[in-house]
Design a binder for these strands. Sequence first.
DNA 1: GCGTGATTACTCGGATACAAGATGTCCGAGTTTGAGCGG
DNA 2: CCGCTCAAACTCGGACATCTTGTATCCGAGTAATCACGC
Lengths: 131, 131
Amino acid sequence: MKFSKATNYALHTMLMLVVASPTKPVGVQQLAEDQGVSPTYLSKILTKLVKGGLIVSVSGANGGYRLSKKKDEITFLDILHAIEGNTSLFECHFDHGPECLIQQVMTEAESKMEEHLKSTKIVDLARKIEV
Amino acid sequence: MKFSKATNYALHTMLMLVVASPTKPVGVQQLAEDQGVSPTYLSKILTKLVKGGLIVSVSGANGGYRLSKKKDEITFLDILHAIEGNTSLFECHFDHGPECLIQQVMTEAESKMEEHLKSTKIVDLARKIEV
DNA sequence: GCGTGATTACTCGGATACAAGATGTCCGAGTTTGAGCGG
DNA sequence: CCGCTCAAACTCGGACATCTTGTATCCGAGTAATCACGC
């Protein structure tokens, strides 16, 4: 039970894209170099962000990735769900009655975390950095 | 990023032990049978709970496992930490400055979840069941 | 009846096996930009 | 100067390779209760 490295890469990449120019795409090579990752692997992660609707890819020369929408709409939770999937962290596999009490508690706990991730946007961090 | 099945087994086992008699130990075979798991595997999980100080094992005939302390002290978080370890869920591997802003947000979110797990005790569920 | 030994019912720990997911790498295919070249 | 072609710079997607982790099984060792047997 840990967040994957891919999540870490995705979060940092998104932060870079928010700081960067909104019109000009940033190449995967530069993003990868800044984080010390291979470009091919990073592109796999970014593909998930594309499918999640957070960024768009611009192919061809001078291509790369840029944000797909207004940057003040992107929350941490959006990124997490794009990478890790949006399934529940805990799933009781038994079939003891309609509702497992343990499941309920775990789901509530998860919601507490998600609430916080939903209320925090990356652009907030970007502002702190730019100061 | 998911809680393991072992966590599910551990939580349900702890619930059974809380409901059971506090003096008489419960055998692994019965616990395993109730959950449809192999006894040998479940014993591995319970060993973690023993090391975590939540339960004690009684060897020999009529042996098994029982709670090690007052049952109204055992929280969900105790069990989770015993099984999953008590390391942070998210760890930024870069060394960009003393504190990673992303790390801070993730740690805060995790704390929200842990707060809830810490404030919920298994005995609360046991009371609901016995009604 | 009582002690002693054997049997039985348990847990414990290590070794092992298997499956799935995370983490990367490699390569071919498609796409756009831009340079070069001929008219 | 214009248009065409071609190379270069990109991303995209699938197919692998590897490593770690979760899940699970098997077996021998130790331990305590119980039963059997002999005194």
